[in-house]
């Protein structure tokens, strides 16, 4: 009989990934509705510090799986270890946060166990004993409620920022830390990982800029960038971009905002021709004032904008530049 919710805790070099705490909030809320209990599992060579940190939260237990083969992350090592942990604990749900690492191994794990995996969820609700997950499609333009009809455990990953890590409930007393025995002897690690690195020294530090004008694919071509550059100049703002602009090498990579670029929180973030995909939004959503200019009134960026103008950026941006200059008495 499957019961309980198993939460995957991600750590790198003994440092807890904070999005695991966001997923913990999802797991704890799910437990509150289903009457299940949440346990956590953490993998590595030595995970005592992370396990102790997590054990302070409201959890039934923190399971640790330690082995030399888990010292560096590899998909084969993680799949083998977690599969055994899940088989031993037989939870109803396995909850993860939708990180790059989870994206790299969890689909393999679910597939080899013949289980279903609902990825990148925003939230969930429980209805007559069944769980309905909400996830975005079309890069955040549409939400869907997804009903799962599958045998336990059901795997679900939650999008970064879907729950607030600081709302993870603390326990009355520390949760017991329980080592799990898994057989790693015969496991072949096909991946040889090298050390992680950063590409180049960041030439610009956008995190310090009070004003940012960010440009997206709506600009259409590199030549058109000048109108946005003029606006930025008039405002005294730094220019930044969404990923496709940097992918096309129209602007250098160190101007990219988002999950694979920089995270900023300026006084003003003016998004021009940017749709507002989650991977962009995580890099700028804490800006003090957000302005969006987009021709599509349904563009997700308007969901977080304080001010919005629906229209053609090729008309609005030059007009805005003129107004800013006027206001500055130029």
């Amino acid at each position: 009989m499957s019961e309980g919710i198993l939460l995957f805790i991600e750590q790198r070099d003994g440092v807890l990934n904070r999005t695991s705490l966001e997923a913990m909030v999802a797991a704890q809320r799910m437990a509150a509705e289903t009457g299940d209990k949440v346990s956590a599992v953490v993998l590595g060579r030595d995970v005592s510090a992370v396990a102790t940190e997590v054990a302070g939260k409201k959890l039934e237990a923190v399971y640790t799986v330690t082995d030399d083969k888990l010292a560096s992350y590899t998909p084969d090592g993680y799949v083998a270890a977690l599969k055994q942990a899940i088989e031993q604990l037989s939870p109803r749900y396995v909850i993860l946060s939708h990180t790059y690492r989870v994206r790299d191994f969890a689909p393999i794990l679910a597939s080899t166990m013949g289980k279903t995996f609902v990825t990148d969820c925003l939230c969930f609700r429980v209805e007559g004993g069944e769980t309905v997950f909400t996830r975005q499609i079309f890069q955040g333009k549409i939400n869907t409620d997804v009903r799962v009809q599958a045998e336990a455990p059901v795997f679900a990953s939650f999008q970064a920022g879907s729950y607030r890590a600081d709302l993870a409930e603390a326990g009355e007393q520390p949760a017991p830390i329980k080592p799990l025995e898994v057989e790693m002897e015969g496991v072949r690690l096909r991946t040889e990982p090298e050390a992680a690195f950063q590409e180049t020294k960041q030439a610009v530090d956008l995190t310090q800029a009070p004003l940012i004008v960010a440009v997206g694919r709506g600009i259409k071509s590199q030549e058109n960038l000048s109108i946005v550059q003029e606006l930025a100049e008039a405002m005294g703002a730094e220019i930044a971009a969404s990923r496709p602009i940097c992918d096309n090498e129209w602007l250098p990579m160190d101007r990219q905002i988002g999950s694979s670029g920089q995270t900023v929180a300026p006084k003003l973030y003016l998004a021009v021709g940017i749709s507002g995909a989650i991977q962009h939004v995580v890099g700028m959503k804490n800006s003090q004032t957000i302005v969006a200019i987009n021709k599509d009134p349904e563009a997700p960026i308007f969901d977080l904008a304080d001010y919005g103008i629906v229209g053609d950026l090729f008309e609005i941006v030059p007009a805005l530049t003129a107004e800013v200059r006027k206001a500055k008495g130029e």
Partner: peptide, 20 residues
């Protein structure tokens, strides 16, 4: 499929946006 979309909808706005 083990996962079935039972409803698709436009996301609810979480913030008051002042449209100009």
């Amino acid at each position: 499929p083990a996962q079935v979309i039972e409803r698709a909808y436009l996301p609810l706005k979480s913030k008051q946006t002042e449209m100009i």
